[in-house]
């Protein structure tokens, strides 16, 4: 079997002295789709943000290997250039910085890291149009300030657009399905499915079986109280939908 793309062992993290992750273990291989579910406040977003390099969380134990390298030693931008992408649960509004500028600077930073020449204006426009179509986003969104005044659903689509532009190896989607109407959910799911491939791994943080009807995961994990307390195949998601988390938390306690 190939080495895992991502290998998390005993990861502990805290914020403002408060422990949140209490020893997370998780292995993700290229080509796999993992779903992480779990009660509110259990640490799912914390895990996602720690993987992306958010400095306000203090890692107090454990290790994370990505492509065999110490991920935690890298700055957030280096992680992104190495192919880690986080779709934020709450995408940040950045007034005064246009979406298209962000996309261009981001794509070219990644290309530079991969030893490729920056895209010229024409090639960039072609690429961004093609990807915007994938998430059914109008071109007017490109000129607007990043996420500013976007509706909840538009923000989530914008995250998927950024993911598609950056072509990551490991995509972590933190509740990208939350707050979407039925059509938008289908659009986002199609976008995610279009990017599924043997080279790429995906971690979907979600509360709903709905998304997993479209994007069928290989593994489902339950994160509770800062630990992964159960891992199984896709059937676990269905069981959770029916029974909630109480029975697992009781078993894990």
């Amino acid at each position: 079997m190939t080495a895992p793309l991502l290998s998390i062992k005993g990861l502990q993290a805290s914020v403002a002295g408060k422990p949140i992750l209490r020893g997370v273990d998780l292995e993700v291989r290229a080509g796999e789709v993992h779903a992480i579910m779990g009660p509110n406040g259990s640490g799912k977003s914390t895990l996602a943000q720690v993987l992306a390099g958010r400095e306000s969380f203090e890692v107090s134990g454990g290790s994370v290997l990505y492509q065999g390298r110490d991920l935690l030693a890298l700055a957030p931008e280096e992680r992104a250039r190495e192919g880690v992408f986080l779709a934020f649960q709450y995408p940040v509004e950045i007034p005064g910085v246009s979406n298209v500028y962000l996309l261009k600077a981001a794509v070219n930073a990644v290309r530079k890291h991969r030893g490729l020449a920056p895209l010229d204006a024409i090639d960039f426009l072609k690429l961004v149009r093609e990807k915007a179509k994938l998430v059914e986003m109008g071109e007017e969104f490109l000129q607007r300030s990043v996420n500013e005044g976007f509706s909840g659903g538009e923000k989530k689509r914008n995250e998927v657009l950024q993911m598609a532009m950056l072509d990551p190896k490991l995509a972590i989607l933190d509740e990208t399905d939350s707050g979407l109407d039925i059509d938008a959910l289908r659009v986002v799911a199609n976008g995610v499915n279009a990017m599924r491939g043997p080279e790429r791994a995906m971690v979907l943080v979600t509360h709903y079986q709905r998304l997993l009807d479209y994007v069928v995961p290989d593994h489902v994990h339950v994160l509770a109280h800062g630990r992964i307390v159960r891992s199984a195949g896709r059937e676990l998601a269905l069981e959770l939908e029916e029974r909630g988390y109480g029975w697992i938390e009781a078993q894990a306690a």
Binding site: R54, E55, V97, Y101, A109
Partner: peptide
Amino acid sequence: EEMLFYLRSRGIPAELGGALLTYAF
């Protein structure tokens, strides 16, 4: 700090991210 992290998480170097946010301000 949140805006800066968002930009960096897209591969944008911290120095450019800081300049961009200042310019936008």
